[in-house]
């Protein structure tokens, strides 16, 4: 039995989520192939070919694949699917968009957001915002999975494996790409950062995010995150939302500032190794999961924390 992993990338660089998806795929079988679909993404294929445990890389390039649109990408995966017993992608916005389409075309029920693989047909996944963990057995002949990247260790680098070029599937263009608005940031990526500094409604404004919270994040070399309330209020862009319906993170250190700790937020960060909460309300639910809680006004505590850390280095 072989496993096909869909590479996550933006044509220029292979995303770390792929190394984590490969690690999950290796729990199913040791013949793991990676599909790199895009345009001008040969470097991505090279990087994938160096992932430890991968035996082959399939490279499909074409205009229709340049922006990872669901329809042509799903058609491509389905066309290759005959050789595989399982197809795996990370639960990124691309994985979540395309994999259910693949599953339905194959008449298979997808298993979403897998956090552990007990055996090749037993999967654990969180439901109800992570308050319950469900173990499911698939009755389908083929398995289509999305995996929660933070739950699997990335594989390391290995010897280069062969790259095989495969044809794209010509088809009708049901959707067309118009534009990308990419949030540019010098800070580390939220989902793979070792430290995350997050702000909530308590930050009060976009300006405070930049002038109070960002300096702390930069002192720590941390990624910035946010609660839904902070994103809805327009303090920061949507790609920073942590939670059940945003990004799931599990850094070594998560610092929550002015975040109350609603279950939907906790669902996105409670697997962090160490959690720090700064909140002026001693009763805030975030303190129930925080290893270190500081009851304080964030506008005093955050600059002081930044100052202490900056002077120590």
């Amino acid at each position: 039995m072989s496993v096909l992993v869909l590479a996550e990338h933006g044509n220029a660089q292979l995303d770390e989520a792929t190394a984590r998806a490969v690690s999950a795929a290796l729990c199913l079988d040791n013949d793991v192939h990676v599909l790199v679909a895009g345009k001008g993404c040969h470097d991505v294929a090279l990087a994938a070919a160096h992932l430890d445990g991968v035996s082959k890389v399939l490279l499909a390039e074409g205009e229709s694949l340049a922006n990872q649109l669901a329809e042509p990408l799903a058609d491509l995966i389905v066309a290759r699917s005959g050789n595989y017993d399982a197809i795996v992608a990370a639960s990124t916005s691309t994985g979540k968009n395309v994999m259910p389409r693949v599953a339905a075309l194959l008449d298979v029920m997808q298993i979403s957001d897998v956090i552990a693989i007990d055996s090749p047909d037993l999967f654990r996944r969180p439901i109800y915002a992570g308050n319950i963990v469900q173990t499911v057995r698939s009755k389908d002949p083929k398995r289509v999975l999305t995996i929660r990247a933070s739950a699997f260790r990335p594989v390391g680098k290995g010897e280069a494996k062969p790259i095989e070029t495969v044809d794209i599937v010509p088809g009708s263009c049901l959707s067309t790409f118009v534009a990308n608005a990419v949030a540019v940031s010098e800070r580390p990526d939220l989902t793979s950062a070792r430290i995350v500094v997050s702000g909530g409604r308590g930050m009060g404004s976009a300006d405070n995010f930049e002038t109070v919270l960002a300096p702390l994040a930069d002192t720590l070399g941390a990624a910035l995150g946010a609660s839904r309330a902070a994103v809805d209020a327009g303090y920061v862009s949507n790609d920073l939302q942590v939670g059940q319906t945003g990004k799931i993170v599990a850094p070594d250190l998560y610092i929550a500032c002015g975040i109350s700790g609603a279950i939907q937020h906790l669902a996105g960060m409670k697997d962090s190794k160490v959690i720090v909460a700064i909140n002026r309300d001693a009763e805030a639910p975030i303190f129930q999961v925080a290893d270190y809680g500081l009851v304080a006004d964030l506008f005093e505590a955050v600059p002081e924390l930044k100052g202490t850390l900056a002077s120590a280095t």
């Binding site: 029920m109 298993i111 037993l122 969180p126 992570g130 308050n131 319950i132 963990v133 469900q134 173990t135 499911v136 057995r137 698939s138 009755k139 409670k270 959690i275 001693a282 303190f287 129930q288 999961v289 925080a290 290893d291 270190y292 809680g293 500081l294 009851v295 304080a296 505590a301 002081e304 924390l305 202490t308």
Partner: peptide, 21 residues
């Protein structure tokens, strides 16, 4: 999909409150 098991994940114990930065 056959649900084989449902369980509550281990809950994270609350830590301590620190007095200062």
């Amino acid at each position: 999909l056959e649900v084989v098991r449902l369980e509550e994940p281990p809950t994270r114990a609350a830590g301590i409150k620190v007095k200062s930065v």
